[in-house]
Design a protein around this nucleic acid. Structure first.
Lengths: 250, 250
DNA sequence: TGAACGCGTTCAGTATACTGAACGTACCAT
DNA sequence: ATGGTACGTTCAGTATACTGAACGCGTTCA
């Protein structure tokens, strides 16, 4: 079995660079990796070419980004899922209802995960079916990140498709913006209801939503508590992605 | 100039894996990278061997960690610096005093960076000189992370070295724990003073301190404001490292 | 039931990466 | 001013990685 000496070395080099606090020289890196200077030089040059490092003057290299790292304003969905899943698990444990992470995909909401509560009567649906954003609380929560113009466009499109009055949708999103969460008291699925709050990335851009859903009657009984749990969970998920400001609607 | 086809590919593979939300097959990865199956198989096997991915059943691979990624309870200092520097910059801008990030190194505090305020009379010192933890506010802030037993040991050691009464040091650290920050009204450097608060990692372990320092008289004039800025900054830095709870002393 | 298909895996042949030695340059010590 | 040292860089020769074709297996479809 073989993969390259270079492949392994570049990962070791990245780990070592991540541990350095200042720019490093070729000689330092070569010594640290116990590899020939010419080999390490090629690796460093490749890292510069690929945007992971930059040259500092004539003699030093500085790491600027790691592979897969959450860059400002750009979250990879796998990373989003890995970083945010603990917050969803915590919200499911606290609320004892089903939790989801949703992202937007065109005019649809797609679900990255579903976490079921440990109880017998629970809301369980197939998350491979995307939903129209305007029809679910996750979608409404995500729409809070749109500009007013983009929101008006989206609402007009939904109205043209017979999915409800544009004005009503705009109002609903504006309410969600002010409150920091969206509620669907009657979901697409008969008898289900849900609460969702937006997840922000490091720059405060809405990249997804955390959603807790369950039987409508049960959610109605505990709505205030569910709302708190969802908002806390979304704040935790946002923090995990690097957002450091207040949650929406705070 | 050449570094391996494998070296470049493994980074592309990691970026792609970071964007996937579920475990992937060899065939999917091969298609995504537009590379031969046998080549990609070797790369995936190497990632499993190195602990970045794990095999899921017979046919799928899942990313579990990225190179240089902050793992729970273990922050690489370069990553700590890259993640926390923006918080220090913000604190320097707000306070108009000099900011530092400090980490512990044995019985010494070492400084990872110094950020100077944009003003003419400012506190500027050589950060290559480490300081004894017990003698600076950064050190005291970091000592708040010790257990009572470890703190007692450290205090006894400092007393034996003629650096002050053990009891006084223990009390000082306990005050800092309760308050969430430490103040040095008279620093090692004549006429300087400083405020520091601990920086926590994702598991709540103290890994460093954020410190604002300046001329003693000027800090005395604005102490309450500086304290708020330092605590906010340390909370922001901690959040950047994945800590999601309340700051110390909240 | 049998053929076709797709996937994971192997390995001999092909292709290319890796590196040791040497060079040019800058810096330091005498 | 000169010699020594260390670093970044180059490149011809050396070493090893990469991969196309084939295989075994499981699944699907007619």
């Amino acid at each position: 079995m073989s993969s390259g000496r270079g492949s392994e070395r570049v990962l070791i080099l990245l780990e070592w660079l991540a541990g350095q606090t200042r720019a490093v020289t070729l000689a330092e890196a070569s010594a640290a990796l116990e590899a020939p200077k010419s080999s390490v030089l090629n690796l460093l040059r490749m890292l510069v070419d690929m945007g992971y490092a930059e040259r500092e003057g004539d003699t030093a290299y500085r790491l600027v980004r790691l592979p897969g790292e959450v860059a400002a304003g750009h979250v990879l969905q796998g990373t989003l899922l890995r970083r945010c899943e603990p917050a969803v698990r915590a919200a499911v444990a606290a609320s004892k209802e089903t939790g989801f992470i949703a992202v937007v995909d065109g005019a649809y909401v797609r679900y990255l995960c579903k976490i079921l509560p440990d109880r017998e009567i629970r809301y369980d649906r197939n998350i491979e079916i995307p939903r129209r954003t305007v029809q679910v609380s996750s979608g409404v929560a995500i729409l809070t990140g749109l500009s007013d113009a983009a929101l008006a466009d989206e609402a007009a499109r939904a109205e043209a498709e017979g999915l409800g009055a544009a004005q009503a949708l705009v109002e609903r999103v504006q309410e969600a913006r002010a409150a920091g969460y969206a509620v669907t008291r009657r979901g697409v699925v008969e008898g289900a209801a849900g609460v969702a709050a937006p997840i922000l990335d490091a720059k405060g851009k809405v990249v997804g939503a955390l959603n807790i859903a369950g039987p409508a009657a049960r959610l109605a009984e505990n709505l205030d508590q569910i709302i708190d749990i969802v908002r806390s969970g979304a704040a935790e998920a946002s923090a995990a992605l690097g957002w450091r400001g207040a949650p929406l609607g705070a």
